[in-house]
């Protein structure tokens, strides 16, 4: 059991996500930076999809009632066990009564506290992820607060051997403030004027303070839509279309005034023209970009998107390989 002594700013239970329910309006939710989350699980010997705590900006304080193995990955923040600073991206042993306190993110936005055995709250529709907007999953569909008690799954048999495992620094995500996102343009982009489509790709956008698990509002140039007689059912504004499904990662420009990029708690559909979709693996990096970060878009086709996917998977495989090497030869190996 993990007892929550302080919930931090917005700490939620998240896993790989809830899939197959987009058609009822239920977005996947799940860890916003999947790479950091997966690597954290690997460090503590879990399967990729085990539930962990997603920390946003300022971390929680938790106490374990049992022996446990934990690792913190993702955003750069101070992690202390019983007041002593410990490194991130390393598996640590906890004794009953030990407290883990996570500080404020100095780089990046979201960190993952992974525990061997995973957070074992009951899954809903196949996932333990918290979807805050509709109060679904996780712990009562909300952020954690002091007094919450989180069951932990059975600790893997060779838990002793996990202690001290670490990720070599060359594999750690760089967490740059400014990010370039690869996007496949399309969907309802036919509504934009030719000039505005080019302007969207040429502009530097800024992450606003309205950036959360649902979507990131980006400030940039005003875009213009083609003149038209509104089709029946679309609505009178030039940015309106007859309501469509919104892919996770899609970008819309309500009224042409600001761009909204939908993240893993996306609203699943609506009546604003979508103009393209950021490829899946690049959402990890946006999830670590705080307000004020600069964002640019680079147009790619589906073949380049597939190459990017392969590189992303190869990177996770290489990290897993470095862990198994560590298990064979230890910290002071070749």
């Amino acid at each position: 059991m993990l007892n929550v002594l302080d919930g931090g700013l917005q700490t939620t239970v998240q896993d790989a996500g809830r899939f197959g329910w987009y058609h009822i309006g239920m977005p996947p939710a799940g860890a916003m930076d999947q790479l950091s989350f997966r690597v954290g699980n690997r460090l503590v010997g879990n399967a990729d999809g085990a539930a962990a705590l997603e920390i946003t900006f300022a971390g929680p304080v938790v106490e374990t009632t049992e022996e446990a193995v934990v690792a913190v990955t993702g955003a750069g923040l101070d992690v202390r066990v019983n007041g002593t600073r410990v490194p991130r991206w390393v598996a640590h042993r906890l004794r009953p009564g030990d407290q883990v306190a996570c500080g404020q993110a100095e780089r990046g936005v979201r960190a993952y506290l992974c525990v061997a055995g995973g957070i074992a709250i009951p899954p809903l529709l196949g996932s333990r992820s918290t979807y805050l907007l509709a109060r679904f999953g996780g712990v009562e569909g909300r952020r954690l607060q002091a007094g919450d008690r989180l069951p932990v799954g059975p600790v893997p048999p060779q838990a002793e051997a996990l202690i001290g495992r670490m990720i070599p620094s060359r594999f750690l995500p760089a967490l740059p403030r400014d990010v370039e996102l690869r996007i496949i343009m399309g969907l309802c982009s036919y509504r934009l004027t030719a000039d505005s489509a080019g302007e969207f790709l040429a502009a530097t956008w800024e992450v606003s303070t309205e950036a959360d698990r649902v979507g990131y509002r980006l400030r940039g140039p005003a875009l213009r839509f083609r003149d038209r007689e509104p089709p029946f059912g679309a609505g009178s504004d030039a940015s309106n279309v007859v309501d469509v499904g919104y892919p996770v990662g899609s970008v819309q420009v309500p009224g042409g005034q600001e761009a909204i990029l939908l993240m893993r708690d996306a609203v699943t559909g609506g009546g604003y023209a979508t103009i393209g979709t950021v490829i899946h693996c690049d959402l990890d990096r946006l999830a670590q970009a705080p307000p004020g970060s600069k964002v640019t878009f680079r147009s790619v086709d589906v073949d380049e998107a597939m190459r990017a996917r392969r590189e992303y998977r190869a990177r996770i495989a290489a990290i897993a390989e470095s862990l198994s090497l560590f298990d064979r030869v230890g910290l002071f190996g070749p």
């Binding site: 996007i183 496949i184 399309g186 969907l187 309802c188 089709p231 029946f232 059912g233 679309a234 279309v241 007859v242 469509v244 499904g245 892919p247 996770v248 990662g249 899609s250 979508t274 979709t277 950021v278 490829i279 899946h280 589906v302 998107a305 597939m306 990017a308 996917r309």
Partner: peptide, 19 residues
């Protein structure tokens, strides 16, 4: 038919609403 990133495909039949 259009790609919604690398995990979705968007298929649009009409720009107007009708039953």
């Amino acid at each position: 038919y259009d790609y919604g990133g690398d995990e979705f495909i968007f298929v649009d039949f009409d720009i107007e609403m009708s039953l």
